[in-house]
Design a protein around this nucleic acid. Sequence first.
DNA 1: TGACAATACTTAATATGACAAGTATTATCG
DNA 2: CGATAATACTTGTCATATTAAGTATTGTCA
Lengths: 151, 151
Amino acid sequence: MPTAKNNKAKLVSTTRSLPIMLIRAREGIMPPIREMLAEYDITEQQWRVLRVLAEYGPLDTSSVAQRACLLLPSLTRIAQKMRDNGLVSLSRDKVDRRRQTISITRAGQHIVDVNQEKAADIVKGFKKTLGKENYEQLLDLLALLEPEFKD
Amino acid sequence: MPTAKNNKAKLVSTTRSLPIMLIRAREGIMPPIREMLAEYDITEQQWRVLRVLAEYGPLDTSSVAQRACLLLPSLTRIAQKMRDNGLVSLSRDKVDRRRQTISITRAGQHIVDVNQEKAADIVKGFKKTLGKENYEQLLDLLALLEPEFKD
DNA sequence: TGACAATACTTAATATGACAAGTATTATCG
DNA sequence: CGATAATACTTGTCATATTAAGTATTGTCA
């Protein structure tokens, strides 16, 4: 075997590791978003919950968790805090009393509304950084890694 | 303006949001890695620290934090726990006593060694899922979002 | 040289991530 | 109809993320 390859498995460099680069990329893009949310004293997670509710309307807890990328135990606590802060309201489903429905309040919707423009500008920044085509392709590639496609 | 666009800023769908998709992609790829690490009772973060030290050799705390994508306060405790578990050793820099140098121990290096092959297989899985070219391009696109390129 | 700023962590406090176990409610099957 | 399983959270525990404040050490400049 004249061109035999080195058979020893070698770890890829941490500068070229997919899990690590996903973290780094997120670190790179989050600062302007955090800056935006800090003005209203809401966390990233609360913002995701608000966006999901604004997009889909009232939903049961499990659906919100899945769409907002939160584990149920986390969402349980986040929702309780958001209720205490007047951002959402919680109600038991009358048919299936195990279920809980989460709805956005006017105060919560207001936060979504006043940040829409700023959020749109941030997205424009992403497109400018990557180029519009690269941006779309990045989203397409990331979609291929989502959990749903791997089960 | 016959073709005037709707000027109202609208939030992109949560199914097409870059920050959210980065989280989801990570959720999609981490299970096999967690499974691998669970056998040795080390966390993702500890694994990243071990890999950085195995790749670069002894480093000061700040450098490890940056390369392992950890904030300093997190690394402080993680390093202490890893020291207690015999995975790394800590020592004060003799010239600048504010600095602390972290080194991997033989036990730590052993964990890296025995997992190299499994880790390589996991990476192969990524390439298989995306295709080799897409995989490389994804890494290139993610690199464009890293914090270093935006300051 | 001595006050002050800067550096490199470290500690503290609160929130979230991850996994395991628990509770209440509903569905199912004999 | 009643025991059991399944569902939909909820609670608990530990580790980590994030921000702010604190400490020890070093650098800088009048």
